[in-house]
Design a protein around this nucleic acid. Structure first.
Lengths: 129, 129
DNA sequence: TCATAACCTTCCTGTTTGTGGAACGCTAGG
DNA sequence: CCTAGCGTTCCACAAACAGGAAGGTTATGA
């Protein structure tokens, strides 16, 4: 099947699929006319990547996950460790964003938001605590 | 004062300060030897940007915030609108990350994490629901 | 049969926000 | 006079694609 169908089945843009090939994440066969040709196996890989990316794994982590997936001698501990470390990063990011949200919503609340120039938000940014 | 001191006072790496100058965010005077020279006003701006960035505003939003800060005829509504839209983006991002976290922590919990290859995490990624 | 639309290809550029490094100039101190 | 520690410019790279140009292929339909 050609890249358009692969794109639909994997829920990845064709551009992205080509990019993944360029960086050596998923190969493709070629038809006589040079078009990319995908089989079941490759579609499966593409979906695997799509799912992994949607969980926030980086492309390099996806590469590792794929190689673990392909390795019958893997230990589930390796997979779990990768997932756990990713989970920690996510939680850290959430904390960071939550801090911003709290500060920012305080600032927004404190600002009248009218035609006048006085603005506690700008005052805060300017460091006039 | 030279860029090293400006860096310390603004809590921004010298490289970053030069970058901000390159994109027209903060200018600098020059000494006879070509070294950048910063005054109180510029340090103030740098700190303003640093604070804004730490709240997650993009560089372009910082540019807007700076121009609002410099504009005596601004209306606080404009500032508030910018902050609110940024706040919404942050909240959206938090939601997204929280979704990842929930799914991922479920997966991590369900995985033994031992020497055996069986791994619910990989199974999930592979789409075997 | 031919035109055209809808695919596909490669290649180049741009995005965002800096960081790292090379190669070099200036200056203060020992 | 030499060296350390500043400063300068310029170039390359990072992640993960997206947009678009220029061109080849194929299916459809008049």
């Amino acid at each position: 099947m050609k890249i358009g169908e692969a794109s639909e089945l994997s829920d990845l843009p064709a551009k992205t699929i080509r990019y993944y090939e360029e960086i050596g994440l998923v190969q493709s066969d070629r038809l006589d006319n040079g078009y990319r040709d995908y089989g079941k196996q490759q579609i499966h890989k593409l979906r695997f990547i799509q799912r992994s990316r949607s969980l926030g794994f980086t492309v390099e982590q996806c590469r590792t996950l794929l190689s673990l997936y392909d390795d019958p001698d893997r230990s589930s501990a390796d997979v779990r460790a990768l997932a756990e470390s990713h989970l920690e990063e996510i939680e850290q990011k959430i904390q960071e964003l939550a801090g911003m949200r709290d500060t920012l919503s305080q600032l927004v609340k404190s600002c009248q938001g009218d035609h006048r120039p006085d603005c506690p938000i700008l005052n805060d940014l300017a460091g006039s605590q």
